[in-house]
């Protein structure tokens, strides 16, 4: 039986669909929460209580959720390209755990440096250092091995998670609020000021541009290290640059959302399945898809047990895990036909 031909979906319509999805989810997110407010009531920015609730309290948080989701998905996309494995994601590879250690240090030492500055810096340092260690281990003995990189990542993630927990347990009570840190560790979207939310847009733009520039190299890496080198790519330098970009994205995500897993794994995976493996096509899709997913997750997090909140990282893990298993099963069935 002849295998069916595959025609890749055209990109522009797909992006439009995703943009529409983002708009729909944002609409839902603005309306839902501790109290449901219909769009008719909050859309006019007329200073009424409902409008204030939506625009003052919800909108900044929604912006942060979108930003965190977009960063996680972009980071996952780059990691999957560099490690040549669809299971790679910042959480699994220790990058998020590294950011967690950095962020924990920043939270535990609020007197030395103001957390507003130290948190993203230390988170980035942690994410970057963790990724470099994983790369170094994965490369031991010369040639890369995708499997070895993943294993190294999982090991480093475990070590760093334990380190973070230890730091928090030993020093948590001294300078800051233990419960808040524990909650943050489980994932929670922080609320930015308007200036900070505007900053998100700029940072996201930079990240997207960087990811686009990496796209061809990531595709080439997928053909094999040697083929990539014969295509003129300095693979060591390229991988190092890619890791820096991915670490930055991870750091921002962790700084504003705590430790949230699965988004970096699932979104690139789904987009690749939908749009094909060429990375240039996937950057925009991952940003929109990751953003939409996390806005939705955060909406559930602050609505389901209102006025209480569920840590959003718990939600993504609870839902993400089974969803991913379902994905795997579906793909196996499709590949078998």
């Amino acid at each position: 039986m002849r295998p069916a031909p595959v025609v890749r979906r055209p990109l522009a319509p797909a992006l439009l669909v995703l943009a529409a999805l983002v708009a729909a989810v944002a609409l839902l997110a603005m309306s839902a929460g501790a109290r449901w407010v219909s769009p008719l009531q909050w859309l006019p920015m007329d200073g009424s209580i409902d409008a204030a609730l939506a625009w003052t309290w919800r909108a900044p948080r929604i912006a942060a959720a979108f930003f965190v989701g977009a960063c996680l998905a972009t980071s996952g996309l780059i990691f999957q390209g560099v490690f040549r494995n669809p299971l790679a994601e910042p959480y699994l590879l220790g990058s998020a755990a590294g950011a967690g250690v950095g962020a924990a240090l920043a939270l535990l030492l609020p007197d030395r440096v103001p957390p507003a500055l130290s948190l993203p810096l230390l988170a980035f340092a942690g994410a970057w250092a963790a990724s470099l260690v994983v790369l170094a281990i994965g490369r031991l003995g010369g040639a890369w091995s995708s499997a070895r990189l993943l294993l190294a990542g999982v090991a480093i993630a475990a070590i760093l998670s334990a380190l973070r927990s230890l730091l928090v347990m030993l020093f948590g009570d001294e300078s800051t609020n233990l419960r808040a840190i524990v909650s943050w560790q489980l994932g929670g979207i922080q609320t930015p000021s308007t200036a900070e939310a505007a900053g998100f847009a700029a940072i996201l733009l930079v990240l997207m541009l960087a990811a686009h520039r990496l796209a061809f190299g990531l595709d080439a890496l997928g053909l094999g290290d040697e083929v990539a080198r014969t295509m003129g790519i300095d693979t060591s330098r390229f991988v190092a640059a890619a890791i820096v970009v991915a670490a930055m994205a991870t750091a921002f995500a962790v700084a504003w959302g705590g430790l949230i897993g699965f988004v970096g794994l699932i979104v690139p995976h789904v987009m690749r399945w939908w749009l094909g493996p060429l990375h240039g096509r996937l950057v925009g899709a991952c940003v929109l898809g990751g953003g939409a997913l996390l806005v939705l997750a955060d909406t559930v997090a602050r609505t389901a047990i209102a006025p209480g909140e569920i840590p959003v990282g718990l939600l993504t893990a609870l839902v993400g895990g089974p969803f991913f298993i379902a994905l795997l099963l579906l793909r196996r069935a499709a590949a078998a036909t």
Partner: peptide
């Protein structure tokens, strides 16, 4: 190829 490319995509690379 690590990714599931179509021939067209391979040629695009």
């Amino acid at each position: 190829s690590h990714w599931d490319l179509t021939v067209a995509e391979l040629l695009a690379l």
